[in-house]
Amino acid sequence: MKLNVERKLTQSQKMMVFVLSMALFGLSKMITEILPSNEIGPIEFSVSYFAFIPLILCVLFHPLYAALGASVGKIIFADLLMGDFSGIGELEGFIQLTVGMYVAGLIVKNPLNKVQLTIAALVGVGMDQILSSVVDITKVWIGIEGFDAVPGLPESIVLLEAVSFVNEMVITGVLFGVIPTLILVPRLYGKIEPLLGMKPREKRVNASMAEFVKPGLITIVIVLGFVSMIAEFMAELDLNFAFWTSDFLLQFENGYEWIGISAGLIVLGLVLYIVKKIFSNKQQVEETIESNKRVL
């Protein structure tokens, strides 16, 4: 429980980390929206986000609040205030980024260890990007009737997503992830924490794998992962529902659409429920941590 103890925060400190991360990442996201982008073929020379900001904050502070703050900041500043809010589509981005950055924050045991920082940055951005590729592929899959039957389509989408993944990993992951993180974390470590009235994390060089594997934290990863799985693949499940029931409903002409629609409503309900859960999850996590501490 060392990580929980060392990064234990009071209610107000959690709020500070959340607000800080929200403001900074929100601002940076807005800036990247403005930056001009150039495309050469399918390769895009643009910065999708300044990954180093949530990475640094997740490394230095409690990763959950920093990650949540960053995701909320992105939605509020870059989407809502800029009139670019895409309704339910925001949810996928929210989950991807939160999970990616949270896990990145967990990986780092010693904020001054360059190897750990590098791995964390790559894993963080990587998770976000993989999840987003999965979502994109799923979208095309669901959105196109008889997706498999179109010659060349499944291969092309996978190929394009792979190209974009590599593209993103190089620009967002390395140029705007690993490199700035390596430069800025040592500069900020020990300096930014007192400004929020906190003690810096201890540097501990040795970290055993066992420390990663903490029931409370694992639970969070699984819960968030599960939530994201549901959100991303629910639609697919519903498609199966539709297939399953289509025989049964053949008697109704064009019943197919209606089932799809009702399935959509179910997804909607679930999604709302999940959004609620994610937020209240914070409290649960705290409780888990607390109870774990008591057990030990």
């Binding site: 399918p42 095309v140 196109i144 009737e145 008889g146 997706f147 179109v150 010659p151 060349g152 389509l153 291969e155 092309s156 989408i157 190929l159 394009l160």
Partner: peptide
Amino acid sequence: LIFVALFLGGTFTALLA
């Protein structure tokens, strides 16, 4: 997507899809 699918699949069906 259409372009690559055309290249890999050899037909224009992707466009319609």
